[in-house]
Amino acid sequence: MCTEHKNENHECTCHTGYTLDTLIPKVGIITDIREETPDVKTFRVNAPEGGKLFEHLPGQCAMICVPGVSEGMFSITSSPTNKEYQEFSIKRCGMLTDHLHTLQVGDPITVRGPYGNNFPVDTVLKGKDLVFVAGGIGLAPLRSVINYVIDNRADYGKVDIVYGSRSADDLVQLKEIRELWMKTEGVNVHLTIDREQEGWTGNVGFVPTYLKELGESGQIEFGVNTISLVCGPPIMIKFVLAALKDMGVSKDKIYTTLELRMKCGVGKCGRCNIGSKYVCKDGPVFRCDEVDELPNEY
């Protein structure tokens, strides 16, 4: 160890302040795998000795790395209020995710994080009515917020969840939606799918159009006290923002996340910057008016 700056218990005093570097991952064990949809699986991860790998806030992400393949940033879909484990919903769409989808329960997995800021649950959102708008795998980042809100139900007002996907069997977390979310008072869930499918009784249509119908029919009021959280494929976000604008919702009342664009996660590797903002440090959660200030390079 460092010769000069030694103190009694052999700790080098000149860099005692640093915990283990944020780029070094921790080894976790996969304790459960749920097949959500044909191409989305939810992995439950625990520390080898049990419990969570690290604490996190809703909307934060973590970097899952597979030695020899590569590493990717995924949002932590379980809520911080859940003490035993953390969960990641991963869609199969590339070399790394292909590999992750072949892992079994009990296999080790290396995770580092948490990275990025979080949805402002304890500040701006406290006491507000919330409207969650999600598309496909976009539900994953919002799920941690929803479950957090449900666990501290009293701190928040009315909750509306508008969630849609390509088809019925592409709806993620369907079991939890039906058994938990729909049963919590003050939370109503509006599900939709893009195209007609036999055996599906719910709404049919794209999320933005469905949101507009709900808004205009008064099922969801966008009062001054309502904050909307939007996440999903870029084109869906574009049309949802347009729909919300038509209904008079101002940009500073809408939050979204620009996930999927990170490498180091600590705002240093210079990849994820849009204008002077670093998505992995200043985001991934942004207020939509902040997003508009950014140069359109995303």
Binding site: C2, T3, P67, P108
Partner: peptide, 23 residues
């Protein structure tokens, strides 16, 4: 090098690289 991973049986062993500690 940031760290080295080694597959040991069912778990992965991560050994971070030693930080520079000589002046």
């Amino acid at each position: 090098t940031l760290y080295t991973c080694k597959n040991e049986g069912k778990t992965i062993k991560i050994t971070p690289e030693e930080l520079v500690d000589q002046p």
